[in-house]
Simulated scan of single mutants.
Amino acid sequence: MDSNLQDGDKAKGAVAVDAFPGLGKTTAVLAFAREFHRREIAEFGAFTAQGHERWPVCRVGLTGNTGMKDLNRAMLEFFGHPGRQNSTAAQLGLQALDCVVSCEVRLLVLDDLHFLKWRKTSGIEVSNHLKWIANEFPVTLLKVGVGLVDKGLFSEGEAGGDTVVAQTGRRTTRLDMPPFTIDTDQGRRHWRQLLLAVEQRIVLADTHPGMLADELSDYLFARSTGHIGSLMTLVNRGCQRAQRTGTERLTRDLLDRVRNDEAAEQARRELEHALQAGRATSRPRTARAAG
C-alpha cells in the first residue's frame, strides 16, 4: 500500500489474494481494510481539505455476470452517487473516478473476482477496465478470489490467447492462504495459537483456558482439516448447542452431535484414524511436554 504512493502516470502494482474457499480470505482482507481505514482517518481526519468525507477504502463485490458498466455502478453504489442509475458505462467510470478522488480513496477491494469469465468477451473488457483503473485511479487494487490462476487472471488464457490478460499478471502480486497443517512443529504451534485466540472469544459459563487448545486440539483439527472456515462453523454451532443444553462448555461428546460443512465431514475420517493411532498430532512439542 505505502509503496504505491506515486504519481498518477505511473503503473501501480496490485495484489491478489488467491486461495481455496473457507480459509478466511475475505475476513483477512476486510480486517486489513478496516485497520487501514482507521489509520488513515486517525492521521488525516474524517474530512478532506475540500470538505468531502474521507473514505480510504472502497469495497466492491462482484457477481456472476459483472460487466464493465456493472463494476462502475457497483463502485458508485458504495458512495451512494445519484447518477448511478441513468448513466452510460463511460460516464459511470468518470463519476467513480470523481468519487475516488474527492473522498481520497487509496484502497479498492474487489471481492469474488473468480466470478468473472476472463476468457470471455466480458472478462476481457473488465480486465482492460481494471488496468484503466490501475492507471488513472489513485488507488491500490486488492483482488480476492478462488482459483484465480486457473481462471486465467495471471496468464494469457489459452494457447495463442490474448496478451491483454497477461499484462495483469505482470502488475499483480499473488498472495495465497494455505490451510493450517500439523506436519511440522511450526505448523502445530500456529494451530495452537489459533485455538488459544478462539478460546478468548468464546462466551460460555463453564469455559476455561485450554478447553480447545489442550483438550480438543486433535479433535478440532480432524473435524476442520485445518480450514478456519470449517473450524469456526463447528465452534459456533457447538457454542449454540452448549447454551441450549445447559452444558456451557465445549466437549467432544457435545461436538459429536454437531454437523459440520460437507467438505470437512468427508475429509475427517482419514485424519481421525491417524490422530487416534498416534501417527500424527496437532500439539507442538512444548505443549506435549507440559501435558
Score class of each variant (00 low, 15 high):
residue 69 K to Y: 05
residue 46 A to I: 09
residue 32 F to A: 13
residue 27 T to C: 08
residue 87 S to V: 10
residue 145 G to Y: 07
residue 82 P to D: 06
residue 64 G to H: 00
residue 36 F to H: 13
residue 111 D to G: 05
residue 122 S to H: 11
residue 137 F to W: 03
residue 143 K to L: 15
residue 31 A to C: 06
residue 41 I to P: 02
residue 61 G to Q: 15
residue 61 G to E: 14
residue 70 D to I: 11
residue 97 L to N: 08
residue 58 C to T: 05
residue 110 L to I: 08
residue 109 V to H: 02
residue 103 C to H: 15
residue 32 F to L: 14
residue 122 S to G: 06
residue 51 G to R: 01
residue 85 Q to S: 12
residue 137 F to A: 14
residue 134 A to N: 09
residue 43 E to G: 05
residue 55 W to G: 04
residue 74 A to V: 07
residue 136 E to G: 06
residue 107 L to S: 06
residue 84 R to N: 01
residue 104 E to T: 03
residue 118 W to E: 08
residue 105 V to M: 02
residue 60 V to L: 08
residue 73 R to T: 15
residue 129 H to T: 02
residue 80 G to I: 00
residue 78 F to Y: 12
residue 79 F to C: 09
residue 87 S to R: 14
residue 77 E to F: 08
residue 36 F to C: 01
residue 100 V to I: 15
residue 72 N to G: 15
residue 140 T to D: 08
residue 42 A to I: 07
residue 128 N to G: 13
residue 131 K to I: 05
residue 39 R to L: 11
residue 70 D to Y: 09
residue 99 C to V: 08
residue 63 T to A: 14
residue 45 G to A: 04
residue 61 G to S: 14
residue 114 H to N: 05
residue 132 W to L: 13
residue 80 G to Y: 00
residue 121 T to K: 14
residue 85 Q to F: 14
residue 39 R to Q: 12
residue 39 R to T: 13
residue 141 L to F: 00
residue 112 D to W: 02
residue 109 V to Y: 02
residue 105 V to E: 00
residue 64 G to Y: 03
residue 114 H to T: 02
residue 81 H to W: 10
residue 28 A to H: 02
residue 123 G to P: 10
residue 68 M to V: 15
residue 136 E to A: 13
residue 35 E to D: 12
residue 77 E to K: 11
residue 142 L to E: 10
residue 64 G to F: 04
residue 35 E to N: 12
residue 53 E to Q: 13
residue 83 G to K: 13
residue 98 D to H: 02
residue 137 F to P: 04
residue 45 G to D: 09
residue 126 V to K: 01
residue 104 E to W: 00
residue 42 A to N: 13
residue 92 L to N: 08
residue 70 D to W: 07
residue 62 L to Q: 04
residue 105 V to D: 00
residue 114 H to D: 09
residue 92 L to Q: 06
residue 102 S to W: 03
residue 85 Q to V: 09
residue 45 G to F: 05
residue 94 L to V: 09
residue 79 F to S: 00
residue 96 A to W: 11
residue 142 L to Y: 06
residue 54 R to L: 10
residue 72 N to E: 12
residue 35 E to G: 01
residue 32 F to W: 14
residue 84 R to A: 02
residue 105 V to L: 01
residue 105 V to G: 01
residue 72 N to I: 06
residue 104 E to C: 03
residue 126 V to W: 01
residue 52 H to S: 07
residue 72 N to M: 11
residue 94 L to K: 12
residue 131 K to C: 00
residue 54 R to W: 09
residue 40 E to C: 00
residue 124 I to V: 14
residue 47 F to P: 05
residue 116 L to C: 03
residue 124 I to C: 07
residue 143 K to C: 15
residue 108 L to H: 02
residue 144 V to W: 10
residue 57 V to R: 01
residue 97 L to F: 12
residue 47 F to G: 06
residue 144 V to S: 09
residue 28 A to W: 04
residue 96 A to Y: 09
residue 43 E to P: 03
residue 76 L to N: 10
residue 121 T to R: 15
residue 66 T to W: 10
residue 34 R to C: 06
residue 86 N to Q: 11
residue 140 T to C: 12
residue 58 C to N: 08
residue 124 I to P: 04
residue 63 T to H: 12
residue 113 L to D: 07
residue 46 A to R: 13
residue 109 V to G: 09
residue 115 F to I: 04
residue 80 G to F: 00
residue 51 G to S: 12
residue 37 H to I: 03
residue 79 F to G: 00
residue 55 W to K: 15
residue 125 E to K: 03
residue 102 S to E: 02
residue 32 F to S: 04
residue 85 Q to M: 11
residue 114 H to V: 05
residue 140 T to E: 13
residue 129 H to S: 04
residue 52 H to A: 13
residue 139 V to H: 01
